[in-house]
Simulated assay, not measured.
Amino acid sequence: MSKKEIQRARIRQYFIDATREVIREEGIGNVTIRKVADLAGYNSATIYNYFEDVSHLIFFAAMTYLREYVKDLAEHVKHVENALDEYLLIWERFCVHSFSQPEIYHAIFGSNLGELPDDIVKSYYDMSPDDLDDLPPELLPMLLEANLNKRSEIALQRCIQAGYVNPADSQKVTNLIVLIYTGMLSLFYNKRRNYTVETATTLVVEYIRIIIVTSKVMFNDLGEPTDGHDQQPANV
């Protein structure tokens, strides 16, 4: 990395750190370009040399909070071999961290932050590769995806290969799971929850387990008919 690139990376990090400070002290809704620039010690115009707009800046600052989730996931997934257990574990750790910091996770996965590049998550990790240390390589495609449905569908592939879910039903299964998760996250984000983080996580993971193990019945993938309507009459 050249001296110029090192300097750019350092200044970019100043802005991200300043944004984190505003988020911590005042909340995401109060982040402005001027506040961040003042805290970082630069004028507002300089920020636009590094970030497209305030939504871009907020996204990158919020992404830094996922470090603990990634580290936690990497540690827990080492001890899981079964495909279904792995999928449930991925969601369990995600729920624990996101329900504990709903404003951050809502900003990344649930709110409208404007027109952000499709590869923005990859761009973040290109700048912060240490955030992915010790992560099993098979989980990397999921973590590089910003869309929750796509993340879930990528993670679901082992369950499909293991026969838990019909490939044709993967999108339906994913949609149901993401709807359940985002509904619970919304309760935490809007401070309308009656659950602890632990209780909410247990509920969501159990609903996900039920969806997975009953998906073939739920979506009528029953194989041979069992009600006799399409069977040949018995010989008399």
Results as ranks from 00 to 15, higher is better:
Leu73Pro: 00
Val96Gln: 05
His97Met: 12
Thr19Leu: 00
Leu116Met: 07
Phe60Leu: 10
Thr64Ser: 07
His106Asn: 15
Ala37Glu: 03
Ile47Phe: 00
Leu66Asn: 05
Tyr65Arg: 13
Ala61Leu: 12
Phe59His: 13
Tyr69Cys: 09
Glu26Met: 07
Asp53Asn: 15
Glu86Met: 13
Gly29Glu: 14
Leu116Ile: 15
Phe51Ile: 00
Thr46Trp: 06
Val54Asp: 08
Glu103Phe: 10
Phe109Arg: 05
His76Tyr: 11
Cys95Ile: 08
Asp118Gln: 14
Gly27Met: 00
Gly41Tyr: 05
Ser100Phe: 04
Ala45Ser: 13
Ala45His: 07
Arg93Ala: 01
Arg20Lys: 08
Ala83Phe: 11
Thr46Gln: 06
Ala83Ile: 10
Ala40Ile: 06
Ala62Leu: 02
Asp72His: 08
Gly27Cys: 08
Ile104Thr: 06
Glu81Asn: 15
Gly27Ile: 04
Phe51Glu: 02
Val77Gln: 11
Ile23Met: 08
Leu73Ala: 03
Val22Asp: 00
His79Glu: 13
Phe60Thr: 01
Ala107Asn: 03
Asp38Trp: 06
Val31Glu: 02
Glu75Gln: 06
Phe59Lys: 07
Glu115Asn: 14
Gly27Ser: 06
Pro102Lys: 01
Ile104Met: 03
Leu88Gln: 14
Ile104Arg: 05
Gly29Leu: 13
Phe109Pro: 00
Tyr50Ile: 01
Glu75Asn: 00
Ser55Pro: 09
Ile108Lys: 13
Asp53His: 14
Met63Asp: 00
Val22Ser: 03
Ile33Ala: 15
Ala45Ile: 09
Glu75Thr: 07
Leu84Asp: 06
Arg24Asp: 02
Arg34Gly: 13
Ala37Arg: 02
His97Ala: 13
His56Arg: 10
Gly29Lys: 09
Tyr87Pro: 01
Phe51Asp: 01
Ile28Trp: 01
Phe60Asn: 03
Lys71Met: 11
Arg20Met: 06
Asp118Phe: 12
Ile104Ala: 04
Leu66Ile: 09
Val96Tyr: 12
His56Gly: 05
Leu57Tyr: 05
Ile108Asn: 03
Arg34Asp: 15
Phe60Ala: 05
Glu68Asn: 13
Asp72Gln: 09
Ala18Val: 03
Ser98Cys: 05
Phe94Trp: 08
Val54Gly: 09
Ser98Lys: 02
Leu113Arg: 06
Thr64Gln: 09
Ala40Gln: 01
Tyr105Met: 07
Lys78Met: 11
Asp38Ala: 15
Ile104Phe: 04
Leu66Tyr: 01
Val70Phe: 11
Ala61Thr: 04
Val80Pro: 02
Ala37Phe: 05
Ala62Lys: 00
Glu92Asn: 15
Val54Met: 11
Glu26Ser: 12
Leu113Thr: 05
Ser100Ala: 11
Val31Ala: 01
Leu57His: 05
Tyr48Phe: 06
Ala37Gly: 01
Leu73Thr: 05
Ala62Phe: 02
Thr19Glu: 07
His79Val: 09
Asn82Ile: 10
His76Arg: 15
Tyr87Trp: 11
Leu88Asn: 06
Leu39Asn: 08
Tyr65Cys: 09
Ser98Glu: 00
Pro117Lys: 06
Lys78Glu: 04
Asn112Cys: 12
Leu73Arg: 03
Val80Tyr: 07
Phe109Leu: 05
Leu84Met: 10
Phe59Val: 07
Ser111Glu: 14
Ile23Gln: 02
Ala74Ile: 10
Val36Pro: 01
His76Ala: 12
Tyr65Ser: 10
Pro117Ala: 14
Asn30Cys: 03
Leu84Glu: 04
Glu103Ala: 12
Glu86Ile: 10
Gly110Lys: 01
